[in-house]
Amino acid sequence: MFKKILYDFKNGLWRENPIIVLVIGMCPTLAVTNTVQNGLAMGIATSFVLLSSEIVISLFKKFIPNNVRIPSFILIIATFVTFTDFFLKAFFPDIASSLSLFIPLIVVNCLILGRQEAFASKNPTRRAIADALGMGIGFTWVLVLLSAVRELLGMGSIFGLTILGSWYQPMVIMILPAGAFISLGVLVGFMNVLKRRGN
Protein backbone atom coordinates (compact mmCIF):
# COMPACT_ATOMS: atom_id res chain seq x y z
CA MET A 1 0.00 0.00 0.00
CA PHE A 2 2.58 2.50 1.15
CA LYS A 3 5.04 1.18 -1.43
CA LYS A 4 2.53 1.78 -4.22
CA ILE A 5 2.01 5.39 -3.16
CA LEU A 6 5.76 5.96 -2.97
CA TYR A 7 6.07 4.47 -6.47
CA ASP A 8 3.41 6.88 -7.82
CA PHE A 9 5.18 9.80 -6.17
CA LYS A 10 8.61 8.93 -7.56
CA ASN A 11 7.19 8.29 -11.01
CA GLY A 12 6.99 11.98 -11.91
CA LEU A 13 10.34 12.93 -10.47
CA TRP A 14 12.48 11.09 -12.99
CA ARG A 15 11.10 8.01 -14.76
CA GLU A 16 8.10 9.79 -16.30
CA ASN A 17 9.21 13.37 -15.78
CA PRO A 18 6.66 15.55 -17.62
CA ILE A 19 9.21 17.77 -19.37
CA ILE A 20 12.30 15.72 -20.12
CA VAL A 21 10.65 12.33 -20.71
CA LEU A 22 7.02 12.91 -21.71
CA VAL A 23 7.81 16.30 -23.37
CA ILE A 24 4.49 17.94 -22.44
CA GLY A 25 3.78 21.39 -21.03
CA MET A 26 6.42 22.98 -23.26
CA CYS A 27 4.93 26.46 -23.65
CA PRO A 28 5.37 27.63 -20.02
CA THR A 29 8.68 25.74 -19.80
CA LEU A 30 10.15 27.87 -22.57
CA ALA A 31 8.36 31.13 -21.88
CA VAL A 32 8.80 31.78 -18.16
CA THR A 33 12.24 30.34 -17.46
CA ASN A 34 14.15 33.58 -18.03
CA THR A 35 14.66 34.07 -14.26
CA VAL A 36 14.68 31.60 -11.36
CA GLN A 37 11.92 33.54 -9.59
CA ASN A 38 9.56 33.19 -12.56
CA GLY A 39 10.42 29.53 -13.08
CA LEU A 40 9.80 28.67 -9.43
CA ALA A 41 6.53 30.64 -9.27
CA MET A 42 5.26 28.96 -12.43
CA GLY A 43 6.21 25.52 -11.07
CA ILE A 44 4.37 26.13 -7.79
CA ALA A 45 1.28 27.57 -9.50
CA THR A 46 1.06 24.63 -11.91
CA SER A 47 1.60 22.11 -9.09
CA PHE A 48 -1.18 23.71 -7.05
CA VAL A 49 -3.66 23.52 -9.93
CA LEU A 50 -2.59 19.96 -10.71
CA LEU A 51 -2.97 18.83 -7.09
CA SER A 52 -6.35 20.45 -6.47
CA SER A 53 -7.88 19.29 -9.73
CA GLU A 54 -6.57 15.73 -9.30
CA ILE A 55 -8.15 15.60 -5.82
CA VAL A 56 -11.51 16.91 -7.03
CA ILE A 57 -11.62 14.70 -10.14
CA SER A 58 -10.60 11.53 -8.33
CA LEU A 59 -13.33 12.21 -5.73
CA PHE A 60 -16.01 12.86 -8.36
CA LYS A 61 -14.91 10.30 -10.96
CA LYS A 62 -18.01 8.13 -10.44
CA PHE A 63 -20.37 11.06 -11.06
CA ILE A 64 -18.78 12.44 -14.24
CA PRO A 65 -20.41 10.87 -17.35
CA ASN A 66 -17.84 9.35 -19.67
CA ASN A 67 -18.98 11.24 -22.78
CA VAL A 68 -18.52 14.71 -21.35
CA ARG A 69 -15.48 14.00 -19.19
CA ILE A 70 -13.02 16.19 -21.12
CA PRO A 71 -15.20 19.36 -20.94
CA SER A 72 -15.88 18.63 -17.25
CA PHE A 73 -12.15 18.26 -16.53
CA ILE A 74 -11.40 21.53 -18.34
CA LEU A 75 -14.11 23.35 -16.35
CA ILE A 76 -12.73 22.08 -13.03
CA ILE A 77 -9.18 23.05 -14.06
CA ALA A 78 -10.33 26.49 -15.26
CA THR A 79 -11.98 27.14 -11.88
CA PHE A 80 -8.73 26.48 -10.00
CA VAL A 81 -6.72 28.52 -12.52
CA THR A 82 -9.04 31.51 -12.03
CA PHE A 83 -8.55 31.13 -8.28
CA THR A 84 -4.73 31.00 -8.64
CA ASP A 85 -4.73 34.00 -10.96
CA PHE A 86 -6.74 36.16 -8.55
CA PHE A 87 -4.61 35.01 -5.62
CA LEU A 88 -1.35 35.95 -7.35
CA LYS A 89 -2.74 39.29 -8.53
CA ALA A 90 -3.79 40.15 -4.96
CA PHE A 91 -0.73 38.97 -3.01
CA PHE A 92 2.17 38.84 -5.52
CA PRO A 93 1.42 41.51 -8.14
CA ASP A 94 5.06 41.56 -9.40
CA ILE A 95 5.08 37.84 -10.17
CA ALA A 96 1.58 38.02 -11.66
CA SER A 97 2.62 40.78 -14.05
CA SER A 98 5.85 39.06 -15.14
CA LEU A 99 4.10 35.74 -15.80
CA SER A 100 1.08 37.62 -17.26
CA LEU A 101 -0.50 35.44 -19.97
CA PHE A 102 1.00 32.16 -18.81
CA ILE A 103 -1.04 31.89 -15.59
CA PRO A 104 -4.40 31.67 -17.44
CA LEU A 105 -2.74 29.38 -19.98
CA ILE A 106 -2.29 26.73 -17.25
CA VAL A 107 -5.87 25.78 -18.29
CA VAL A 108 -4.59 24.33 -21.55
CA ASN A 109 -1.33 22.89 -20.18
CA CYS A 110 -1.36 19.35 -21.59
CA LEU A 111 0.36 18.11 -18.42
CA ILE A 112 -2.69 18.87 -16.26
CA LEU A 113 -5.39 17.54 -18.58
CA GLY A 114 -3.19 14.55 -19.42
CA ARG A 115 -2.80 13.51 -15.76
CA GLN A 116 -6.56 13.80 -15.16
CA GLU A 117 -7.28 11.57 -18.14
CA ALA A 118 -4.47 9.09 -17.50
CA PHE A 119 -4.45 8.93 -13.73
CA ALA A 120 -6.95 10.83 -11.56
CA SER A 121 -10.04 9.54 -13.37
CA LYS A 122 -8.99 5.91 -12.81
CA ASN A 123 -7.34 5.78 -9.38
CA PRO A 124 -8.28 6.41 -5.72
CA THR A 125 -7.71 9.83 -4.21
CA ARG A 126 -4.62 9.00 -2.13
CA ARG A 127 -2.79 7.68 -5.18
CA ALA A 128 -3.93 10.72 -7.19
CA ILE A 129 -2.43 13.01 -4.51
CA ALA A 130 0.90 11.13 -4.67
CA ASP A 131 0.89 11.33 -8.46
CA ALA A 132 0.09 15.07 -8.48
CA LEU A 133 2.83 15.82 -5.94
CA GLY A 134 5.39 13.79 -7.89
CA MET A 135 4.49 15.31 -11.25
CA GLY A 136 4.32 18.81 -9.76
CA ILE A 137 7.75 18.54 -8.15
CA GLY A 138 9.14 16.89 -11.29
CA PHE A 139 7.84 19.81 -13.38
CA THR A 140 9.14 22.40 -10.91
CA TRP A 141 12.70 21.09 -10.59
CA VAL A 142 13.23 21.07 -14.35
CA LEU A 143 11.86 24.64 -14.58
CA VAL A 144 14.17 25.80 -11.77
CA LEU A 145 17.21 24.07 -13.28
CA LEU A 146 16.52 25.50 -16.74
CA SER A 147 15.86 29.00 -15.43
CA ALA A 148 19.01 28.89 -13.23
CA VAL A 149 21.14 28.06 -16.27
CA ARG A 150 19.49 30.76 -18.37
CA GLU A 151 19.64 33.45 -15.69
CA LEU A 152 23.26 32.65 -14.82
CA LEU A 153 24.45 32.76 -18.43
CA GLY A 154 22.12 35.54 -19.54
CA MET A 155 22.48 37.98 -16.64
CA GLY A 156 25.24 36.52 -14.45
CA SER A 157 22.88 36.25 -11.48
CA ILE A 158 20.59 33.78 -9.70
CA PHE A 159 17.41 34.90 -7.90
CA GLY A 160 18.48 38.46 -8.77
CA LEU A 161 21.75 38.10 -6.79
CA THR A 162 24.87 38.72 -8.84
CA ILE A 163 26.98 35.56 -8.92
CA LEU A 164 29.40 36.22 -11.72
CA GLY A 165 31.31 39.46 -11.21
CA SER A 166 31.73 42.42 -13.50
CA TRP A 167 34.32 40.52 -15.57
CA TYR A 168 31.51 38.39 -16.97
CA GLN A 169 30.05 39.49 -20.28
CA PRO A 170 26.37 38.35 -20.14
CA MET A 171 25.14 36.26 -23.05
CA VAL A 172 21.92 38.18 -23.66
CA ILE A 173 20.75 35.58 -26.18
CA MET A 174 20.13 33.15 -23.30
CA ILE A 175 17.25 35.16 -21.87
CA LEU A 176 15.74 35.80 -25.31
CA PRO A 177 13.41 33.25 -27.01
CA ALA A 178 16.23 31.71 -29.08
CA GLY A 179 18.20 30.87 -25.93
CA ALA A 180 15.14 29.17 -24.40
CA PHE A 181 14.82 26.74 -27.30
CA ILE A 182 18.54 25.98 -27.47
CA SER A 183 19.06 25.51 -23.72
CA LEU A 184 16.02 23.22 -23.38
CA GLY A 185 17.21 21.22 -26.40
CA VAL A 186 20.67 20.81 -24.89
CA LEU A 187 19.16 19.90 -21.48
CA VAL A 188 16.89 17.18 -22.94
CA GLY A 189 19.85 15.87 -24.98
CA PHE A 190 22.01 15.79 -21.86
CA MET A 191 19.30 13.87 -19.95
CA ASN A 192 19.18 11.37 -22.83
CA VAL A 193 22.93 10.82 -22.44
CA LEU A 194 22.46 10.17 -18.69
CA LYS A 195 19.59 7.76 -19.36
CA ARG A 196 21.62 5.81 -21.92
CA ARG A 197 24.50 5.53 -19.45
CA GLY A 198 22.08 4.24 -16.81
CA ASN A 199 20.77 1.41 -18.97
Partner: peptide, 17 residues
Protein backbone atom coordinates in the same frame (compact mmCIF):
# COMPACT_ATOMS: atom_id res chain seq x y z
CA UNK B 1 22.03 9.46 -31.01
CA UNK B 2 21.13 11.42 -27.85
CA UNK B 3 19.97 14.48 -29.77
CA UNK B 4 17.56 12.60 -32.07
CA UNK B 5 13.92 13.62 -31.97
CA UNK B 6 12.88 16.40 -29.61
CA UNK B 7 16.31 17.89 -28.65
CA UNK B 8 17.47 18.55 -32.21
CA UNK B 9 14.04 20.01 -33.08
CA UNK B 10 14.32 22.43 -30.15
CA UNK B 11 17.83 23.48 -31.16
CA UNK B 12 16.64 24.02 -34.75
CA UNK B 13 13.74 26.10 -33.41
CA UNK B 14 16.27 28.19 -31.49
CA UNK B 15 18.21 28.91 -34.65
CA UNK B 16 14.95 29.78 -36.44
CA UNK B 17 14.01 32.12 -33.58
Amino acid sequence: ESLKGVPITLILAGIMA
